[in-house]
Write a protein that binds this DNA or RNA. Sequence first.
DNA 1: ACGATATAATTGAAAGTGCAACTATTGCAG
DNA 2: CTGCAATAGTTGCACTTTCAATTATATCGT
Lengths: 146, 146
Amino acid sequence: MTPNLHESHSSLWRVFLTAYTTITEKIERDLATADLPPLTWYDVLWTLEQAPEHRLRLHELAEKILLSRSNLTRLLDRLETAGLICRERCPNDRRGAYAVLTEAGIAMRQRMWPFYAEGISKYFTAHLSPEEVTVMHQALERVLKV
Amino acid sequence: MTPNLHESHSSLWRVFLTAYTTITEKIERDLATADLPPLTWYDVLWTLEQAPEHRLRLHELAEKILLSRSNLTRLLDRLETAGLICRERCPNDRRGAYAVLTEAGIAMRQRMWPFYAEGISKYFTAHLSPEEVTVMHQALERVLKV
DNA sequence: ACGATATAATTGAAAGTGCAACTATTGCAG
DNA sequence: CTGCAATAGTTGCACTTTCAATTATATCGT
């Protein structure tokens, strides 16, 4: 019945899941307390800020932030009504659109970052040794390469 | 503007997030393809199976699987209509109720496990060395101790 | 150039989630 | 014991997410 998954592996998976849940929950709580938007919004803002000219085609954005298309559509609706991004029609491909970061979007990301960074540190990385940080980073990158 | 969060830390956080999302997404997809319930259901079934007599008070269960009360209420509704658990009134405390695993619940967990285990291995632990498993486990446990 | 197929993004309906309010019961202070 | 706060669980409501279907446009094979 039990496939050959070593106990140490399922046990690692369990703490991995729990760590993710508790850490993000705490960070979300901190953001909400400061009357700031949730992590998903940060993700969009940050991703756009990285992109050349602060703009990305919607499907590129969807892929980068690991979100389904329809999900992204409505997430961007919310961000757009909040004035943090705007949509621009794509000149070459008339099916498509760009999501473009606004000034307010940049400002919001900057406003969120201190809280986010504080959370990452307080709830996660502050408890790790430099070696652990290196090992985990390497390991998880390798996992993602597949 | 940027608090003193080292680049290596935010970068670790980023891969951590991405790893979580992609891995769970893939596992969910595999389960859905096999016409099996989602991971949250597995979590409840597994947690109950660990518990003495396969039963837990709802608030204990909620705490163990890191879910809000209201969320749990409705998750259990679904599991109950599927016949995988049932509720029993608590004799001592008339406010309370137990969630109790049924035979069908046990069977379902066993049916899900091979797919789940396969996913954990294929998408996660198979790419890790034994040392990495140990280091990550230790590190994440420490993170959760707080 | 034509039609079949693929891709981009949106939409409607359904399911899931979170917050705050609510009911019922228990336990504790005085 | 009485009343007030705390706890257990559910419910209503608003919001978010997902799935499948839809619209519009582009691309490929012949």
